[in-house]
Design a binder for these strands. Structure first.
Length: 119
DNA sequence: ACTTTGACTATAA
DNA sequence: GTTATAGCCAAAG
C-alpha cells in the first residue's frame, strides 16, 4: 500500500476515488454502483459527496465519468465550468443530450459486475 | 453532541 | 412517461 497518504477520516472517500479511477476510457458509471461496490449500497450520496474533494486528490479523479443512475450529469455544475463535464464525455465518444448521456446503458460500467466477470 | 446538508436512489401516485 | 416523497449514510458546521 503506502501509495498515497490520506487522513483516516478520508478512508471511505479514498475507496471512491480509486474505484472512479478504474472506470475505463469512454465508460461511465453511477454513484450507486460505486457505493454498492464498496459495500455501502445506500451511501450513494456519499460518493457524490466524496467527488466534491475529487479535484483535490492526486492523481486526478475522472469524476466526469460518474453520473447518476439516470445518466444525468448531476454533477456538471461542480466542475470548473458547467460545460466541462459534457465536453469531456463527448471527447471520449460519449454523446450528451440535454445534460443526459445518450445510450447510457451502453456506456454504463459497473465495477462489481466487471470484476466478477474477469475471472 | 446536535443539526443541516448533499454530484443519490427507490418507491408511490 | 413524469413528479413527489421518503430513506439513506457520512461529512461539515
Amino acid at each position: 500500500m503506502a501509495k498515497i497518504k490520506f487522513k483516516k477520516s478520508d478512508d471511505f472517500f479514498v475507496q471512491v476515488y480509486e474505484v472512479t479511477r478504474l472506470i475505463p476510457y469512454g465508460r461511465v458509471t453511477s454513484y450507486g454502483a460505486i457505493a454498492r461496490f464498496l459495500g455501502h449500497s445506500r451511501a450513494s450520496r456519499m460518493v457524490g459527496y466524496a467527488m466534491n474533494n475529487a479535484h483535490t486528490q492526486v492523481p486526478p479523479v475522472p469524476a466526469h465519468r460518474v453520473v447518476n443512475r439516470n445518466g444525468q450529469l448531476s454533477g456538471k455544475h461542480h466542475f470548473a465550468t458547467p460545460t466541462e463535464m459534457q465536453e469531456l464525455l463527448e471527447m471520449e465518444g460519449i454523446k450528451v443530450k440535454n445534460d443526459t448521456v445518450v445510450n447510457f446503458h451502453l456506456h454504463y460500467w459497473e465495477p462489481a459486475t466487471m470484476l466478477e466477470d474477469l475471472e
